[in-house]
Design a protein around this nucleic acid. Structure first.
Lengths: 186, 186, 186, 186
DNA sequence: ACTGGCGGGACGTCCCGTTGAT
DNA sequence: ATCAACGGGACGTCCCGCCAGT
């Protein structure tokens, strides 16, 4: 049984994840066939499947990794930063776009996805809460509503980006700001 | 001398479209296999493929039909009506969700999709323009920006619905309204 | 029950046979699909299959018709005429080329083919016999051998023509003549 | 690091070629379905198509192998040896018979086939030339004509063999000899 | 008499994941 | 640890022929 340093394992994992993202992003989940994954990662089936038990698991690992990273961007830099991030790296959208479709057909997956990264979600909620307390966003609508609204806008932008349509980042962010602005005297 | 009446053909077409929508909606484009299409439509391959030359053509016929119908709802009833329509019939979402993913991988398809129903798109633009002229929505941002914003929100809602997440219709619409409201004295 | 004159039936039969020959000749038996037969004949499945019970039967009718005609040419005009005939109408070769392949896989068909047109075969044998008696061809080899030799040359020419290779008609016929010439003083 | 030794690969290749020849020979190209190829080779689709990218490629590999071998027999042993070889192994005929039929419908394939093994064709031409110089065959007809004549006779014999008809080897070869004999005083 | 809708099966291809070899 | 050979199943397509309908 050959042995290998943990560093090597991590590097391989990264190599697989990076190549897989390119493949999934370019072709979509089903069209990113194992041969294409091999090509993009530069590794063979054997190697890939020794790190991830199936194509689906590899895909989900990628999706959760992105999810965590983007949540972090949101928490750290706010919604603007989140949107600018995805616009700046549209090649990452591919993976994200496939997720909801898979959730649709597989309730078990839906639960898994929902339960992922509860800590991050909580931190995000706290941050929005803080903004609200500071009077920067309106407090006459529920936190949940704001979260869902932002989520929808974000997902919508991703869909447009993913489909190759132009996105008006500044304009959209301006409208989002207006939507969340505390009510003024009218 | 055709073998069947045009009425029969139309009925069959509907039967195929309806069954196919169920199949595509439930499973997604690739997982809606031909046997599943047969099962849902109650017809055999021979019948289905005598009306549509391929699975993709059937899918696109469905997608364009929905697209036209929803655009009509939007034009006639406004954005609220559009959102309430998709929320009321979430089983129609499935087909819609697969479209952008397919556009991503196929530029030719993207062009075809974009060029579809130009008249409807124009009519929608006119309507928004009219609302703006009437002072019901703000005129300090471009028409294009408003269209893209609404499109994004709508698509985002579809993604959430499609993925099986709850959607806060009233709250979201309220925020959209705020986003588009003409600026007041602050 | 509609009625039709025998003339009409014969005309339809010709129409089907002629179209089918074009299709079989151009594409070969398996690639000459029923839709292609429909196209070439200008008739529908129903019409075609009401005159011939299956694609194979239609093909064999055609093959036997050609076989009979070519045998007649051979009997009437000799081997030279036969060869010149097939060279002049290479589009007829297609059907002929598929026959031996089908015989190979189907012994029953082989018997049917062999038993076809015994009268013609006999007449041909008589003719060669007569030539031999007249001293025009050598009599030191069996009639059977001569027949098989000529058959092989003819089939070989057909194969070459069918494959699209050039055929040296005059040269080949000259060599055949030499092969069959009565032995001279050497 | 390959999984198997080159010897293993060669053995597998042979196993596939041999089984495929049986299948193609018995049923013909189109009727030699993939399941039948699996059965004859004793291997699965996965194995077969990992050695040959498609059924057509497998078939052509076989055809070219035979072509090369038989050309060698012709060059080394003369036309007699060639004919005796195919008569002795009639199961090899099947593959050979399908080739011209495929060439007929596919000009690209025709070019590929023609360009195959030019060295062998040249060596054969030299050999016949040498025989002619030595006075063993007539020199009053072109080399090309002789080649085409022999090719036609050979192909005709193959057709007969393939179709399951008897072939009179000795008689036919005797006639071929007469055809090519130098002209004597008459 | 003729049409063409339709059933149902078979096609070649390609897929994913296991496994035995290195 | 990594490889590629391989099994076996599923895919969309297209085929042929039957027969209901005109």
């Amino acid at each position: 049984v050959p042995k290998v340093t943990p560093e090597h394992r991590d590097a391989r994992r990264r190599q697989i994840l990076d190549g897989a993202r390119r493949a999934f992003g370019r072709f979509g989940y089903e069209a990113a066939t194992v041969p294409r994954l091999e090509e993009e990662t530069g590794l063979s089936r054997g190697a890939i499947f020794s790190y991830y038990p199936s194509k689906l698991d590899l895909f989900l690992a990628l999706a959760e990794e992105d999810q965590a990273r983007l949540l972090e961007v949101w928490i750290e830099g706010g919604f603007d930063a989140l949107v600018r991030e995805v616009v700046a790296r549209p090649e990452w959208i591919g993976v994200y776009l496939d997720v909801p479709r898979m959730l649709r057909a597989d309730p078990a997956l839906r639960d898994r996805w929902r339960a992922f990264n509860p800590l991050g979600q909580e931190r995000l909620a706290s941050r929005i809460e803080a903004l609200r307390s500071a009077g920067e966003i309106r407090s006459d609508v529920g936190l949940e509503t704001i979260g869902k609204f932002l989520g929808a806008v974000y997902d919508g932008i991703c869909v447009h980006l993913g489909a190759g349509f132009d996105v008006d980042v500044d304009g959209t962010l301006e409208l989002v700001r207006a939507a969340l602005a505390p009510p003024a005297v009218r």
